[in-house]
Design a protein around this nucleic acid. Structure first.
Length: 697
DNA sequence: TTAGGGTTAG
């Protein structure tokens, strides 16, 4: 490359023989050239404009250069921009600093920071505006470290920052989560009395929020005399990102009270907030406002609306908006697919997925997540093969889902292959992929690999990682070790209700009553909310540890009881050979208006087997489909065969076997055969022998 | 003359 524009500037500034030419001598030719240049600039043809300029060996008014610099907005303009700068410096060797500052900004916008920096460095006396231009050029292109260095250098050079400098610096602090420097900048804002500046106020709200300090962000927000739409947008967005969707919605609604019209982005943020915590009512109200303001034409807002309805389970409403919008984009298609898939309407989701005009990794993941959520492992596996054939780059979500599928299928080999891929492609530092890996090893029964991986994750693990490890101990019936690990966990992170679920399951599976009681005590002492999930885990733990009375006490303590907790206690009674108690509790459950499901009947039939209540069992089985409209599963038929076989009700057994609407399984036939032999009931024995022969052929 | 926020889907 030849001599740069900035060096030309330097030479010119030191050359004494060049004098600025009088600018009043504009001839008609100059005027014509200016007109041509302006028309090119206004049409966005910077290079053409610069060529005309360059061909004219005379100075032009500064305003023309300023106009040209201002219109340089994309990297395409950079060649023209260089020409214009060089022309300026050749024919006006002493240009005003403000014009050079405009050129620095223009280089920034053209993504040519080297030129910007060179020009700045060659300036004999950069002013505050030059520093600002360069700092903001770096700030807007995300080079936070450069911004920080320049800011310090600027201070050292004795140049005072102004509002513009601080806005750029705070923006970079937000990008880099640089809280220490942000606080220093905050002090400067206060010291120089810029506190009432709404732009700096918004930047401070933003930076505190991005650094996870929502209390400070909120305090800053409250100090701003009249927050504008951008300020509100920032605070809503920061609450949403901080995981407080509820507060995001509250603040969004407050905007209407203070009569600040939300921006498009704020509408979509509020809709995302509603979607994330299933606040349909608020979502519908926002929908109303969106329509009133005509924002439903906006692609992003309409996609957010579709997503909100789908996530709130209102599939038809979401689909209706989708049908109405003119340009259905990838995002709205994916929202629809995901909505159906996550509601368990897998078939519908797949149908829509297959109709999609285009797909990306997110749409593939949305569909795969549906299969995984509903444990449709074989379909998921087929889908993965299909996906890998169609898409080149999978991401950490795909990899996590693939690990879930490996775990679901207990296919450790597949899991290991995914592990290899994760390692080779640098996904091992991704937390969700790492947690999925841990979960896979645990569920595939490889406690050793799970532990090794868990230790390797030491600097980037969270409570999900700990839970996965605890679940792995549970899987290996190591309740005691789980508890030890739980104590260790508290040095690092806080337990959640899911942790207790896992720990109590570990205690239940290893009959560790003492540890179970300790966990129960921990939950109470630390004031964790005793929700239905924890309560169910406790009921399960106590009944599995042969402490049925405790289990019943926990059950009674619940404000409301769902089918799962009732089923748990009914099975708990069976586990403790207390069939009568199970039937008694079943009646209480019905009195509470809870409808039994397949699992309940399985428990009831088990109780009847346990107690030898053959008539009750027979009645129950009959009423199951006739009165409760609960279709029997294979397990229920199995229970009935066990009931008749164990208690020697051979006529009933024969009748049942011969009239079953499904073919008896091998184990059912074997069980019944044993009973016929024991009870010398040869007619059935012969029939079964015949059936068993059929099986063999 | 220069400054802030932000684009929906897994």
């Amino acid at each position: 490359m030849g001599v740069s524009a900035a060096s030309i500037l330097n030479q010119l500034l030191h050359a004494k023989n060049l004098k600025p030419q009088p600018r009043s001598t504009a001839t008609n030719t100059t005027k014509a050239a200016i007109t041509t240049i302006l028309s090119h600039v206004n049409a966005g043809h910077i290079c053409k404009a610069a060529s005309v300029l360059f061909a004219f060996p005379a100075p032009f008014p500064y305003s023309l250069y300023a106009h040209l610099f201002q219109h340089c907005t994309s990297p395409r303009a950079v060649v023209g921009l260089r020409k214009a700068e060089s022309h300026l410096l050749t024919f006006s060797p002493n240009p005003p600093i403000f014009l050079l500052n405009r050129a620095i900004e223009a280089y920034g916008r053209c993504d040519s920071l080297r030129d910007a920096r060179e020009l700045f460095d060659e300036m004999p006396q950069p002013d505050g505006g030059s520093w600002n231009a360069l700092i903001n050029a770096y700030s807007q292109r995300g080079f936070s470290d450069e911004v920080f260095k320049l800011f310090l250098k600027m201070n050292r050079c004795g140049v005072y920052p102004n509002q513009i400098t601080l806005a750029g610096v705070l923006g970079s602090c937000a990008v880099a989560s640089e809280i220490v420097l942000a606080k220093q900048a905050h002090v400067t804002v206060v010291k120089f009395g810029f506190c009432r500046n709404v732009i700096l106020g918004s930047s401070l709200v933003n930076v505190y929020g991005k650094c996870g300090l929502m209390v400070d962000a909120r305090r800053m927000f409250q100090e701003i005399p009249s927050p504008n739409a951008v300020t509100w947008n920032v605070i809503v967005r920061r609450y949403l990102d901080a995981g407080d969707a509820r507060e995001a919605i509250v603040l969004f609604s407050r905007m209407f009270l203070v009569k600040v019209r939300p921006l498009h982005f704020t509408f979509s943020a509020a809709l995302v907030a509603c979607a994330s915590i299933s606040r349909l009512e608020e979502g519908m109200q926002i929908h109303g406002v969106v329509v009133k303001l005509g924002l439903h034409e906006d692609n992003v807002v309409s996609s957010s609306l579709i997503n909100m309805y789908m996530k709130c389970g209102k599939l038809e409403d979401g689909h209706e908006i989708f049908d109405q919008i003119g340009s259905k984009d990838l995002v709205s298609w994916t929202s629809i697919v995901s909505g159906y898939a996550m509601c368990g309407k897998i078939w519908e989701a797949r149908k829509i997925f297959d109709e999609m005009p285009e797909r990306n990794v997110i749409s593939w993941n949305a569909m795969l997540a549906g299969y995984a959520r509903f444990c449709d492992w074989h379909e998921a596996l087929d889908f993965i093969y299909l996906m890998l054939g169609k898409i080149k780059d999978v991401d950490h979500v795909t990899l996590s889902l693939m690990l879930n599928v490996s775990a679901g299928l207990s296919d450790q080999e597949m899991g290991k292959q995914v592990h290899g891929y994760i390692y080779r492609h640098g996904f091992h530092s991704n937390l969700s992929a790492g947690n999925a890996l841990l979960d896979m090893y645990g569920k595939c029964g490889n406690l050793n690999s799970a532990t090794v991986w868990f230790d390797q994750m030491s600097n980037r693990r969270d409570w999900v990682s700990w839970n996965a490890l605890l679940a792995s101990y549970d899987h290996h019936q190591l309740g005691e070790q789980a508890l030890t690990k739980f104590l260790e966990m508290q040095w690092e992170t806080k337990p959640t209700k899911y942790t207790f679920g896992t720990l109590l399951a570990a205690c239940a599976n290893s009959s560790s009553l003492n540890f179970g009681k300790q966990i129960h005590g921990f939950i109470i002492r630390h004031g964790f909310e005793m929700d239905i999930i924890i309560r169910t885990a406790l009921v399960n733990m106590y009944s599995r540890c042969r402490c049925l009375e405790y289990a019943i006490e926990v059950l009674k303590g619940a404000i409301s009881r769902d089918i799962v907790i009732w089923n748990t206690i009914i099975f708990g009674c069976c586990h403790n050979h207390r069939g009568k108690k199970a039937l008694e509790l079943f009646q209480l459950m019905e009195a509470e208006g809870i409808n039994p499901d397949q699992v309940t009947f399985q428990g009831i039939l088990l109780a009847c087997v346990e107690e030898g209540f053959v008539d009750v069992g027979t009645d129950c089985f009959r009423s199951m489909s006739n009165e409760y409209y609960v279709l029997p599963w294979l397990e229920h038929y199995d229970c009935m065969i066990e009931l008749y076989s164990r208690h020697g009700y051979m006529d009933e057994l024969e009748n049942f076997l011969k009239t079953m609407p499904i073919e008896p399984t091998l184990s059912m036939l074997r069980r019944a055969f044993e009973a016929s032999q024991k009870n010398r009931y040869s007619r059935l024995g012969e029939w079964i022998t015949h059936k068993l022969n059929e099986f063999e052929h």
